[in-house]
Design a binder for these strands. Structure first.
Lengths: 286, 286
DNA sequence: CTTATTTATTGCAAAAGGTGATCCTGTGGC
DNA sequence: GCCACAGGATCACCTTTTGCAATAAATAAG
């Protein structure tokens, strides 16, 4: 089977009309080049290059091989870059993908190493399904039930805040204590984000519990509902930062012990040591 | 740089839907195949094959690579056979090329190993020039003056006979002794065939010597001249075998010590170890 | 003849390649 | 649930290949 490295040397020697020049261009030692050419010649029992002192001349065999060699090298380069261009598909729910992931993605792309990254934004259950289908390489999840074949890595512990409309009775509070919270009726967020589990952990299985008055499909819907006065809700702080700044929503942190969600980076164990995932996850968690 | 062997393994694994089957077909051990795939995957940091129990599935990256891999392998095969098909160019003067070489060429082609052979028939000086120009890979010469950069190998010691027309006074002789020959006037053959040197060696530098009455350009011309009664000549026995059989010429061997020419196989030392030349010369001289 | 330049050769350490033996892990039968 | 099984991964070991620095050989120019 032909060795593309040898072919590259062969082409370079003819292109540069000499071994030394070719060696410089390929950034290898000249004896190495000599050996490459000898290997190629011996492997096929054909002399390829007439070594003259004033340059090298291709033999007839070399002239027939040369176009094939060039094509092979060109094709090889295309093949290689086609692999490199394999994009990394990162899944995230909208609130994470939009509000938290973007800065990381931008910085990762600026690094210029590693593959291009596509962020796939979808609901948490859909993300999970795509992940197990192999449609996604990595996902950031708000909640994860350990599954064999996947690695889950803690990413950020993100504070959860209570959001209320500006005119709400609690709007001027600097924080919300546990008891107040436990008696509230909350608008439920997107299913599959683990909010229920979060509350259960926070309030314990038996104590008084906030009731969830309605279940909306996305964080955006929840925010709208809160804005128009339908109630309060618990959301990741980062997903309402903008609304808090322009005054359309009020975010109130929960008193100590604060409420927060452990965001997880999930990827198939099969991609464990594979560079694109490895480097991207490394970038996220560094 | 991509490794074509690894690519071959990669394609085989997907084609056979499994490592073991692919290993059998490629006639390598299964761990080797595992390693090939791992090399390929690690080199580019991409998972290529989802290893499932019931078969292997290509990843997205694999699907983009696959067509390139197939093209590369196909092209590689073409390249390889293009080298193999590099023809061997064998030069010979007409009397050798036509009367002596053909059976060897035919048998060599029948063997089916080694390259195709082209026989280039030309005058001895022209053959010699083509040889040093690299236009020819091998030549059979009637005479050779050692030249640096070329290997000369004795091939056959071919008897030289005196030819005369059927009515000639010597036509009924079964052989010609040295003295008779030395007093004859001969028609000279093609220049560069070493006949002069042959006679000098045979008769010694000082003794009586056949005179050369005219110098003709080719053995065919010499034969014609002899047929029409212009004189006698010395030629390789094999080049007049046909005329002797049909009676148009009479060939008379020279008495002991016989007259013969050492035919030489000549090729550039640079082709010394190169298979096509090696195998062809080997076939000739075996 | 000497020098300078270019390719070939050599010796060696490092890396890669291949293999049999063995381990690991889902799968299917019971 | 347990067990055997099959397919792939991993390991240890050996052989081959690779690349380089140093050095030699060849040849053209001065």
């Amino acid at each position: 089977m032909l060795n593309l490295v040898w072919l590259k040397s062969f082409v370079a020697v003819l292109d540069h009309n000499g071994f030394q020049a070719a060696a410089r261009q390929l950034d290898i030692a000249q004896p190495t080049l000599s050996q490459h050419l000898q290997k190629l010649e011996n492997q096929h029992g054909v002399l390829l290059v007439h070594r003259g002192r004033s340059g090298c001349e291709p033999t007839r065999a070399a002239l027939t091989l040369l176009p094939f060699a060039r094509s092979l090298l060109r094709l090889e380069e295309q093949a290689r870059s086609s692999i490199m261009e394999a994009r990394l598909r990162v899944g995230a729910s909208s609130n994470i993908g939009i509000y938290m992931l973007q800065p990381y993605i931008r910085r990762y792309k600026e690094l210029g190493v590693g593959p291009e990254v596509d962020v796939v934004i979808d609901s948490n259950p859909t993300i999970a399904r795509h992940l197990s289908d192999g449609e996604l390489d990595v996902a950031i999840m708000e909640w994860w039930h350990d599954l064999p074949g996947f690695h889950a890595q803690a990413w950020r512990n993100e504070p959860v805040v209570l959001i209320v409309p500006p005119g709400h009775p609690l709007a001027r509070r600097t924080d919300i204590d546990r008891d107040t919270l436990s008696n509230m009726a909350l608008i439920g967020g997107e299913p599959g984000t683990g909010t229920g589990r979060l509350l259960a952990t926070y309030f314990g299985e038996h104590g008084p519990f906030p009731t969830v008055s309605m279940q909306l499909g996305s964080t955006e819907a929840v925010k709208q509902a809160v804005k128009v006065g339908l109630g309060a809700s618990l959301v990741l702080e980062s997903s309402v930062r903008e609304e808090v700044q322009n005054g359309s929503l009020v975010a109130i942190p929960v008193s100590e012990p604060g409420l927060s969600k452990e965001l997880m980076v999930i990827y198939p164990s099969s991609l464990d040591k594979h560079r694109p995932v490895y480097s991207f996850v490394g970038h996220l968690c560094e």
